[in-house]
């Protein structure tokens, strides 16, 4: 059975006000329940692409549709369907983790018209998903959390609210081995169980290989290859995705330099 297409990115270009051409016309689409990975060197344009899809910044040209909603034309409707974890995680210094979860879960669910009990349950679920002790969440302020703890908090609420589309910009960066292991499994589990579509970026090729259904490799704002990890590995006759990644990059060197 063909599943619905949830994300359509169509020839998206982005030139920042300073003149940097971060994206030079990228296109891809992601189906419902699919985990789509974006990989590429620093400055390739991954975060830019995610911020455009999350309706934070506007593309210079091109179109983004999420769950049938044009993100540029109707950002408010699109935001009801999208939950986003930015690359640089933060946190309200003076709020406890629990207060934060309550605030953000309720805010997100209210827009969807969910009843209060659902919000309460979702907060509990988010607390579980953080993997952090309740003691810490309810007593300590986010200002005292480590970067990894903050990230776990952000990913937890995003999964707990089960958005149509979760955008996770380097969700495991800075997490300890155990936490990133758990998180990878949670992302996969939630995506399969709730049909949640996930966009993920990462510099960890092992992670991408195990988590993503499909991967796009982006460099200098251009997608240079795209496919299931297995297909890519086979296509480049590589041992694993990391190996394939290195082979692609060395063959495509100096495209724009």
């Amino acid at each position: 059975m063909e599943r619905n297409v949830v994300v359509i990115v169509d020839r998206v270009e982005k030139v920042y006000p300073g003149g940097v051409r971060a994206l030079r016309g990228i296109s891809f689409s992601v189906r419902e329940g699919e985990i789509f990975g974006l990989v590429g060197p620093n400055g390739a344009g991954k975060t830019t692409a995610f911020r455009i899809i999350a309706s934070l910044i506007k593309p210079t040209s091109g179109k983004v549709v999420v769950d049938g909603v044009d993100v540029v034309a109707n950002p408010f409707e699109a935001r009801k369907r999208i939950a986003y974890v930015p690359e640089e995680v933060g946190g309200y210094r003076r709020l406890t983790g629990l207060e934060y979860l309550k605030f953000i879960v309720t805010t997100f669910l209210r827009a969807r018209g969910a009843p209060r009990e659902e919000a309460e349950k979702t907060v509990e679920e988010a607390v579980e998903l953080t993997g952090l002790p309740m003691e810490r969440l309810s007593k300590a302020k986010m200002g005292d959390y480590s970067k990894g703890m903050k990230r776990r908090l952000q990913v937890a609420w995003v999964l707990a609210v089960k958005p149509k589309l979760a955008i996770l910009d380097e969700p495991t960066t800075g997490l300890d081995v155990e936490a990133s292991y758990e998180l990878r499994h949670l992302i996969k589990e939630y995506s399969k169980r709730y049909g949640m579509t996930v966009l993920i970026s990462s510099h960890n090729m092992f992670e991408v290989e195990t988590v993503c259904d499909r991967v796009a490799l982006i460099k200098d704002g251009v997608i240079i290859d795209e496919g299931a990890p297995r297909e890519i590995i086979e296509k480049y006759d590589a041992v694993n995705l990391e190996d394939a990644y290195m082979k692609i990059l060395s063959s495509k060197k100096s495209v724009y330099s």
């Binding site: 911020r51 999350a54 309706s55 934070l56 408010f76 935001r79 009801k80 999208i82 939950a83 986003y84 974890v85 930015p86 640089e88 995680v89 933060g90 946190g91 309200y92 210094r93 953000i104 805010t107 997100f108 827009a111 969807r112 952000q154």
Partner: peptide, 14 residues
């Protein structure tokens, strides 16, 4: 400064 503006602005809040 607390890097929460992007999160706030990505929420479905008018």
């Amino acid at each position: 400064e607390e890097r929460m503006l992007d999160v706030l602005l990505s929420l479905p809040v008018r």
